[in-house]
């Protein structure tokens, strides 16, 4: 029954998200000019309609989740340390956002590459280290010198 419950949970989550949109986010963060004569043309109309439809779909998911008797496939077995690794990846991503403007894209990418390679337990650590250094440099060369993209250089070591 886990999958069925999960479907209902997805439905409930959709209803909650749509309700938050309808009652909190849209009234506060969607501005509409006062001279709009018809609601259909208002900037508010489309977000409200979509939120309403999301509620309906959420209800559909809840109902089908609770009342169907579909045989459920076994849940994917939990992988040992899976959530921990995902947490570390989330931390890497957060740190990346802080590091990109300060360290620069090339150095940050080198660190991300190495960290991710070890996070997924690479069986080729030497190759991973070599690639962690070369891949960001090659990409920098292409984007900065071929595509003329201003790659962030950071505050410390600047590349030509």
């Amino acid at each position: 029954m886990q999958r069925i419950k999960r479907q209902s949970l997805i439905g409930i989550a959709s209803i909650i998200v749509a309700a938050v949109l309808m009652f909190a986010i849209i009234p506060t963060w969607v501005s509409s000019p006062s001279n709009v004569r018809n609601i259909v043309l208002s900037p508010l109309f489309w977000p409200y309609i979509l939120s309403g439809l999301t509620v309906l779909i959420g209800l559909g998911l809840v109902v089908t989740g609770f009342f169907t008797t579909d045989p459920v496939e076994p849940e994917q077995p939990a992988i040992s340390g899976g959530y921990g690794r995902l947490g570390i990846l989330a931390a890497i991503m957060t740190l990346t956002m802080f590091a990109l403007p300060r360290l620069g894209m090339v150095w940050t990418s080198m660190l991300i590459f190495a960290a991710t390679a070890f996070l997924i337990r690479t069986s080729h650590p030497r190759a991973a280290i070599i690639c962690a250094i070369t891949v960001p440099l090659v990409l920098y060369g292409f984007f900065a010198h071929v595509a003329s993209v201003a790659i962030p250089q950071g505050n410390y070591v600047r590349l030509p």
């Binding site: 997924i120 991973a128 690639c131």
Partner: peptide
């Protein structure tokens, strides 16, 4: 090796 491919994909995505 996948342990090299996927970090490469991540860095490529960022660039």
């Amino acid at each position: 090796p996948r342990g090299v491919l996927f970090p490469g994909v991540l860095v490529l995505c960022i660039y």
